[in-house]
Design a binder for these strands. Structure first.
Lengths: 365, 365
DNA sequence: AAGAAATGCTAAATGGATTTAGCCTTGGCA
DNA sequence: TGCCAAGGCTAAATCCATTTAGCATTTCTT
């Protein structure tokens, strides 16, 4: 952030500079000079002064005065991290926009903003505690540090928290343990003997829960330790690099649970290049936060897709908060499970990863 | 839109209702009642009145008064259509957020909003011509109807138009004809004899240009008419349905240009299920507006990926407009071309689409 | 030449909320 | 009893821009 500069330029300054009244300045800046009968020469002088002084209109002032919907603008925001997968943000945005469209009236308009913070550093986000910014927000993709801050801070506006339980706030989250447990079960049922999980270095509450539940379930059911791959980030490239290294170290993998779909995508690529077939050699389970999951080759089995369901819950909750209606402190979403090809391991057809013909055909080379 | 209702509730009404001054009400609503020594009983009465009357704070009023960055908030927006692919919006959002983060100072804060209109009906978007909304906007994903409206309308704020040339406005667009021509050339060079294009029913200026240039190039170079597939929408499902029908009608396809990546994804699925190999049987070219293009199987050759480059141009232009600096009326972006596996047709290996073994292995069944 | 009309501008009210200075009680203490 | 301090609140200024009513001039009309 740059340092503060001198106070803002107002129409009073322009008026003083040119030697006219603020009324004249306002008329010109609003392009009303014709109907208000301002002399062309004056118009020009005002315009030049505005430009020379670096005038920036104050929207708060304008809105306050302009007797219309503007005065009743409801400002909403989605607060998310730079590091979060964009599809997640996109889903939330779309859902909120659609709701806002319905809620709008002739004298109430809505504005939906997106605020982004750096994962884990939401406390450094300027203006977060200002009461003059938003009527309500949806907060998502927070890391534990962020959650801690939110638990202490008293936000001066209603908020719906996505993916995390925070005392005293309205929260929408995945049914705990569900995703991790079901993913583990699916891999076990597919006959995997070396189930592995891949996750990003940064864990949100939700992804941490998925990871924990997965590992616990694997341990309980198989009496073995699950493999764990940590990727630097959520980008497919990073996932690919992490998985490649894991395999290069000789760790066995015949079932993979990706806590985020983008990780699964990266994994697909590596598995393909290693000549390992999905699901014959490696079964893969993703989490369905990506709308294209079913279009992967083979179609990705997903447990979750909870983001869309969570957003669908969160948006009405936000409007209820805005109206001052009571809301439940917590809404649990049980994500749908889509069994697709990436885990449909045919029992009749044993693993054949070493078949060179099949490999060639598959990799398209 | 619902009809207008009664005038908004202000703190004056609350004050009158409770029988105190607005100062007291303001103090309570801002949670300053302790330091301002308001009696607990009064606090409670004010709170109840605010709730009972359905008070909604007026952010314009708050911002105007609160002597800080709030007064110097710069409101920016990305104006896009509901129907546009979300990744495109996401890229623009990210780029703008990053720029805003740098531009922010201690006494100037930015708010980035997203406004969505229905494709082709931007003129129905309420509040678009209000001067009290935004300091500047980026407009993208417009259809020709929208462009016509924008050409006539005089927007009361600076705007950068993406993907369309509109007189008198600052525009960033793909170098005309480039994408369509290069895509055609790539398919021709891959040896395609029945090159086909697939596009959505709704055509933006950009997608229409791609379509036209592709068809023209095919005609000029091959003396044949290109195949044209019209999909109802941009979703992979819709693309898949359209392509399936096209093939079912017996139209030959051995090269496909998708004017949008999501269309290519849908095509991949159909081709796979038809047992047609990429690129051996069908070469596919997409346009790289999807960050996952290179992770498709096989990796998708893309001409363009121009959105990211366009956004990278547009954001600085917007800030220059805000500062009142001169800007070029038009910036042309020549998109990068990524030749990947989906068009690397091996010359030595002829088409083998009828080979049942290859088909089985490929579809994973 | 006198009134009408057009021209070019200003003064002042207004929108909603915040905040500072300060007023009036009441209670405590010497 | 008299004075001070604390408690509880209000009046009024202020943030910036818009807009209405209206005041001087000047220019036409007839």
């Amino acid at each position: 952030m740059k340092p503060a500069s001198r106070p803002p330029v107002t129409i009073y300054e322009i008026a003083h500079h040119v030697g006219v009244s603020t009324a004249a300045v306002s008329s010109v800046l609003a392009n009303r000079h014709v109907e208000r009968r301002i002399a062309p020469a004056t118009v020009e002088r005002i315009r030049q002064a505005a430009h020379a002084l670096g005038y920036v209109p104050n929207m708060a002032g304008r809105r306050l005065r302009s007797q219309r919907a503007a005065t009743r603008q409801i400002d909403l925001a989605i607060l998310t991290s730079f590091e979060a997968p964009l599809p997640l943000v996109g889903q939330a945005l779309h859902a909120l926009q659609r709701a806002v469209e319905v809620q709008s009236t002739a004298d109430t308009r809505y504005a939906v903003a997106i605020e982004m913070f750096h994962a884990g550093r939401i406390r450094e986000k300027a203006g977060l505690l200002d009461a003059d910014r938003y009527h309500g927000v949806i907060i998502t993709n927070t890391l534990p540090e962020d959650d801690r801050f939110l638990a202490e801070a008293s936000l001066p506006y209603p908020a719906v928290i996505l993916g995390r339980r925070i005392a005293g706030r309205c929260c929408v989250l995945e049914a705990p343990e569900f995703v991790g447990r079901r993913s583990a079960e699916i891999l076990i049922e597919s006959g995997c003997r070396a189930p592995t999980v891949i996750h990003g270095r940064l864990l949100t509450h939700t992804t941490a829960d998925r990871l924990d539940a997965f590992c616990r379930t694997i341990r309980e059911r198989t009496r073995r330790e699950p493999g764990v791959i940590v990727s630097d980030g959520l980008h497919p490239h990073q996932a690919a690099a992490a998985l490649e290294q894991h395999c290069a170290h000789g760790h066995p993998v015949d079932g993979l649970f990706a806590v985020t779909d983008s990780l699964a995508i990266g994994a697909y690529r590596v598995l393909r290049s290693l000549g390992r077939r999905i699901p014959a050699d490696v079964a893969v389970v993703g989490v369905g936060d990506h709308e294209l999951a079913e279009f992967f080759d083979p179609a990705l089995t997903t447990v979750a897709g909870a983001n869309e369901a969570m957003v669908a819950e969160a948006v009405p909750l936000l409007f209820r908060l805005l109206r001052g209606e009571p809301v439940p402190p917590e809404v649990l979403v049980v994500p749908p499970v889509f069994l697709r090809e990436s885990t449909r391991r045919p029992r009749s057809q044993p693993s054949a990863g070493k078949d060179p013909a099949a490999r060639r055909a598959r990799t398209g080379r």
